[in-house]
């Protein structure tokens, strides 16, 4: 329960949106409407893959007006620890899953006077929800969406249908790239930019924003990290008096959970800070993969974010 209130859902529909992305429609088992959420929010989906528990965050694309379903989009990533492959290959319509309450780490800045939404690939999922919220609020916005080729058009078609000429599409195969230097200079004072997509794209857009003279306060991004695998190591939980092995295909947090300890978490993507844990000792180097701890905190070796970070060494002792 450390991740908060959980909701049981049934997979009501699976749609192959692009060659590599499936959209899942999730309906509540209880029949009670699913909670309203603010755009930019995600849920953590719990999957049980042959006894291996996997929990991944996915941004919410949309909610039915009456709360009868949510939609999430899942990109199949071959080098993942299994979450996306499980959802693509093993989950069928009618299957049951567990999700958390929505959590928003990528909110619209409501004091902004205009909003520029930039998406690349699967990063379109939170942007899709943000555009809809801005449209409903009659707030000024525009959308820039980069995709591989025309076959990736499921989201594009819907965005154009809902937002008309507010949408600009860019196709990699036509050598179309998002020209930050063309988009940003004439935006009115008080505009905010939001970008979600591949790591390299986010970096380029944010750097372009700074080059255009935008203050960092007006530039926002969401980077969800899939926990990276690595060499196995041993973790000792001092308070619980338990020692466990972190396998190469699981995260530190997953190993802790598998050992029966209810450790704190929220985003499972290295962003929110909820799983921050005190390191008692580590015989080896801490591999910090999160976006939460400062460089000084990472260097000090006193804390670790269990959802995405790990040890390159033999044993890690945690204050859990």
């Amino acid at each position: 329960m450390s991740g908060g209130v959980e909701i049981l859902v049934r997979v009501a529909d699976i749609e192959q949106a692009t060659a590599t992305v499936r959209r899942f429609t999730l309906a509540p088992l209880s029949g009670e409407p699913l909670p309203v959420y603010s755009a930019g929010a995600h849920v953590v989906v719990t999957m049980d893959d042959d006894g291996h528990r996997i929990r991944n965050p996915y941004s919410l694309i949309s909610r039915a007006q009456d709360g009868s379903h949510y939609r999430i989009g899942v990109l199949k990533t071959p080098n993942s620890r299994g979450g996306s492959i499980y959802l693509h290959e093993k989950v069928c319509e009618g299957d049951e899953l567990v999700i958390t309450m929505p959590v928003n780490l990528f909110p619209i800045v409501r004091t902004g006077r205009k909003h520029v939404l930039v998406a690349g690939g699967i990063g379109v999922t939170p942007i899709y929800a943000m555009a809809e919220e801005l449209r409903a609020a009659s707030a000024p916005y525009e959308i820039h969406y980069a995709m591989r080729d025309a076959s990736c058009g499921a989201f594009a078609d819907e965005l154009v249908e809902m937002h008309g000429d507010k949408v600009r599409l860019y196709r990699d195969d036509a050598q179309e790239v998002i020209r930050v230097d063309a988009i940003l200079p004439h935006q009115p004072l008080g505009t905010h930019l939001y970008v979600c997509g591949p790591e390299g794209m986010i970096d380029a857009i944010l750097a372009g924003g700074r080059k255009a003279g935008w203050p960092v306060e007006n530039l926002h991004s969401e980077r969800f990290l899939a926990p990276m695998g690595g060499a196995p190591f041993s973790v000792a939980l001092a308070k619980a008096g338990i020692t466990a092995t972190v396998r190469s295909d699981q995260s530190l947090l997953e190993a802790i959970e598998e050992a029966g300890v209810d450790a704190p978490y929220l985003c499972r993507g290295g962003a929110c800070g909820q799983c921050e844990t005190r390191v008692i000792s580590a015989d080896g180097e801490l591999i910090h993969n999160d976006h939460y701890l400062s460089d000084e905190e990472k260097a000090s070796g006193a804390k670790i974010m269990t959802c995405v970070s790990r040890l390159k060494g033999r044993e890690l002792v945690l204050d859990l």
Binding site: L184, P185, Q187, P188, L189, T191, A212, G213, W214
Partner: peptide, 10 residues
């Protein structure tokens, strides 16, 4: 001036 200013104004 702020009313017509664009982003990139510090």
């Amino acid at each position: 001036m702020l009313n017509t200013a664009t982003m990139g104004t510090r």
